[in-house]
Structures are given as structure tokens and as C-alpha cells.
Design a protein around this nucleic acid. Structure first.
Lengths: 194, 194
DNA sequence: CTCAGAAAGTTTAGCTGTTACGCTTTTTTA
DNA sequence: TAAAAAAGCGTAACAGCTAAACTTTCTGAG
């Protein structure tokens, strides 16, 4: 299906080699203890080449596989079962994403630990994740029949995307996520009266 | 009241001189077009000294006056009138803060424009602002009789603090802020049925 | 087939933010 | 008044990142 000439294949190989070297060195010795020159050396390419492949800089080396999560977010809103609210739909989808990933890739643990323990990477991950805010807000607005730039929709999208970041590090992340989406769904007043 | 020896007075003067030079040069030519060496020169100080005064780096030069906003946030929750909800109290307090500042300092306009147009400064401002999350969450939890690290309280604190950042750039920021706090107070379901 | 050009890569050299180090001067204080 | 403390200085260096000019490798149209 994916027709790749020799050129693109080599390019992908180089990129992969860089990402692999970076992840290995970072997990071995820590993000701040590994320089970009050293990564380039380990992948046997020049520093300039490294930056041609990862123009967003050192942090981007860690997030090589940025798959189609935006589509999944929008779909969660659009194709939710009848009677399910938007916050509920997003809540379920985020829970699913999380548990699926953990039990799939073997070295995904190292990846998560690395990101969690490195402030620069946490920030970067958040920025990447929040890029989808616009698309998600648009989907919500469309669904609710409101203007595309409606502030309420933007807020819901933003808060829903921040939820996973916010609960990371909790003793019980799943329950914490429940609480956050309870707040978004029913409001502060709704969460107390029970 | 404030007993300052010659030493501390000179230190404060140097710091002020640096912040002034930085703000002037930044507004004149743009944040990215002014180097840190140039700022030190303009303030007639060595680069080393500049970083002794602002160890957090170039961005910190812009936010010299980081006054007691944390206390104000906590007070807004603790000393709110009877019958007023926590989101309402925070909403009012944030509205007040905003309008007061705009009509007070003359060069505050330049400051805001600079921050708004410079990604690095936006990020930095957000981080500074969100440092108060912990204190605010604790105040909310205490008020509601919940555990200090309750996820719902953390979420409310976090979202309330992000609200002003979120509505910046809207056509009508005050109304947008209303919508955001409506979401936090009544939830997504509550905002539609009305 | 072939050859011109696109694309990947290299070298070199440099800029910017930031820090370490060792030294001088000023202010405080014992 | 001597010594400790603190502010500042200059140099040098490191890390992330970029530009420029040049070489190699692949692709594709004639």
C-alpha cells in the first residue's frame, strides 16, 4: 500500500535511527545529560541533519510517533451513542486511550517515565496535545449548534484535553479523571449536592 | 518601615534599571530581536550580573512586579459573602483584577501587548500564574471540607486559573469569561438546558 | 539510457541563552 | 579597623540551534 522509493525509505531509516538513539541515551542517562551532538554521533549523522529531521528541537526526538489522535477525539464527539453527553463521550475515550497504550508497546513504560520526570518534556507533550483544541472545539460547537469560536465550547475542549495531564501523578488516576469530568459535566454546584 | 541599607538600595536600583532597559528595548524592537548582552549593556552591567538578578532567564526580565496575587485568590474563596459559590467568587475577583490593572499603570498596555504577541512570554506568564494552583486548591478543599489533594478541587483551581489565559484574544473577553465560569459552576449539561 | 535537478547529508562557522570560575570593589558588621 | 559578606566584572566555555556553500545519492522525463 505505501509505495516508498529507496529515497524515502532511507530517510525514514535515518529518522528512526535518530529517535531510537535519543530514546536509548535519554533513558540510560537522563534527558539533560545527553547533548544533541552526542545523539547525532550515535546515529552516525551530522547535527544539521538531526535538525532537518526534527526542526522542533531536542524535545521532538522523544515524540516520534504522533499518530492520528485528533481524528479520534473528533470522532468521539461526532459518533457518540444517542443520549450520551459530550463530556461523557470524551471521558470514555480518554480512559480507553490510556489503558490501551500501556498494554501494547513494551518500551512504552520507559517513555512515560522519561516524560514524567523531565519538565521540558512534560511541557512539550502538553503543547502537542493541546494543539487539537481547535479541532475539538469546532466539533463540539458543530454538535451543539453554536458558533465555531464559541467560548464555552473552547473552554470545554481545552479543559477536557488538560484533564489527562492534570490527573497524572494522582494515586488513582482513573478515579481522579472521573472527578474532573464530573466537574465538567455537572459543574461545581452539581458535584456537591449529589 | 522598610529599612534599606545603601547596599540593598543599590541592588534594587540595578535590578530596576535592568527591567526598565529590557521592557524598553523589547517594546521598541521585539522580544526576539534583543539579546541579553545588549540589555546588560543598556543597563551598564555585565551579563553575569544580569543573570544574578534574574536567574530564571530572559523571560523573567519582563515580569518584575510579581505581587501578592496568591493571597488575593485565597482570600476571594475564604472571605466570600454568604450564599456565594466558589466559582462565582473567583469569577468576580478575576474580573476585578483585570479591569483594575488596565486603568492604573500607563505603560501596562505595552506590557500586555508584548506578552500577548510573544509565545515564550505567554508560556512563561502562564507558568507563573499557575504556580498558585496548589494554594488555591488547598483553600477550596478546606472550604468544602475535602482532602487537601482532592482531584475535584485541584481541577477547579486549575481551570479557574486558566480561564483568564483562555479568554485572552476573544472579541468580548468579559462575556467569554462568563461562559467559562458558567461551565465550571453549572457544568456542560447545565449550560444548555437553561 | 542518461543526465539535470531535487533531496539528503556534510562541514564549517557562528549566534544566543546560560553558567562556572576566579578576581576586584564596596558595604556591613564584629 | 579588620574581616566577612555581597555585588559586580571579564573571560571562557557549553548547549541548542541555524545558515551557507558544497557533495553525494536518488528520481524521473526526454
Amino acid at each position: 500500500m505505501t509505495e516508498m522509493g529507496r529515497r524515502e525509505r532511507k530517510k525514514a531509516a535515518t529518522r528512526q535511527s535518530l529517535a531510537d538513539a535519543a530514546l536509548r541515551l535519554f533513558t540510560e542517562r537522563g534527558y539533560d545529560e545527553v547533548g544533541v551532538r552526542e545523539i547525532a554521533d550515535a546515529a552516525d549523522v551530522s547535527v544539521t541533519t538531526l535538525f532537518k529531521h526534527f526542526p522542533d528541537g531536542k524535545e521532538a526526538l522523544v515524540f516520534d510517533q504522533d499518530v492520528d489522535r485528533e481524528a479520534a477525539l473528533v470522532a468521539a464527539v461526532r459518533e457518540r451513542p444517542a443520549g450520551q453527553s459530550v463530556p461523557e463521550a470524551l471521558h470514555r475515550m480518554l480512559l480507553g486511550e490510556h489503558s490501551r497504550r500501556v498494554h501494547t508497546d513494551p518500551r512504552f513504560d520507559d517513555f512515560l517515565r522519561l516524560v514524567d520526570t523531565t519538565p521540558a518534556l512534560r511541557e512539550y507533550a502538553r503543547r502537542m496535545w493541546l494543539r487539537h483544541e481547535h479541532a475539538l472545539a469546532a466539533a463540539i460547537a458543530d454538535d451543539a449548534g453554536l458558533a465555531t469560536d464559541d467560548p464555552g465550547c473552547r473552554a470545554l475542549a481545552h479543559f477536557a484535553l488538560e484533564a489527562p495531564v492534570l490527573v497524572r501523578g494522582s494515586r488513582d488516576p482513573d478515579t481522579a479523571l472521573d472527578r474532573v469530568f464530573d466537574l465538567l459535566g455537572n459543574g461545581w454546584s452539581g458535584t456537591r449536592a449529589g
